[in-house]
């Protein structure tokens, strides 16, 4: 199945990805508006990938994580740095590794 691409972030980010062919874009200014847009992107069956800047994702904090938890396989969601390269200090994946697999890393290391 083929799907379209949506991008949420600042002006530079959405201009760049629009030039690359992304179908839907939203510049984040007001919280409620962006939240509604995100819900729309997540619910639409035709979007396969949502790119969102770390800065915006972080601002939505709990609400955004909640949306990730309740979405299905699609759309895929990827957090990306903006022009300034901003990324949160704590990497989401590292957090998960620590929370879930943590102790098992040792097992794996022994195994290798």
């Amino acid at each position: 199945m083929s799907y379209k691409i949506a991008v949420v972030g600042d002006q530079d980010t959405i201009t760049g990805f629009a030039l690359a062919g992304a179908t839907y874009t939203h510049i984040h200014t007001a919280r409620e508006e962006t939240l509604a847009k995100l819900n729309e992107f997540f619910a639409s069956g035709e979007i396969g990938l949502v790119l969102i800047t770390h800065r915006v994702a972080e601002e939505f904090g709990f609400d955004f994580r909640q949306m990730l938890r309740t979405k299905g396989l699609l759309p895929l969601v990827l957090r990306i740095p903006d022009k300034t390269g901003y990324m949160p200090k704590v990497d989401e994946l590292r957090k998960i590794i620590r929370r879930t697999v943590g102790a098992e890393i040792m097992v794996k290391k022994e195994g290798l």
Binding site: L19, A20, G21, L73
Partner: peptide
């Protein structure tokens, strides 16, 4: 002008997602 171009360009890139 750049913003204008980003609006005018064809924006129909598709990704094929299966499982």
């Amino acid at each position: 002008e750049t913003k204008q171009a980003s609006k005018e360009t064809k924006r129909e890139l598709q990704v094929d997602v299966s499982t």
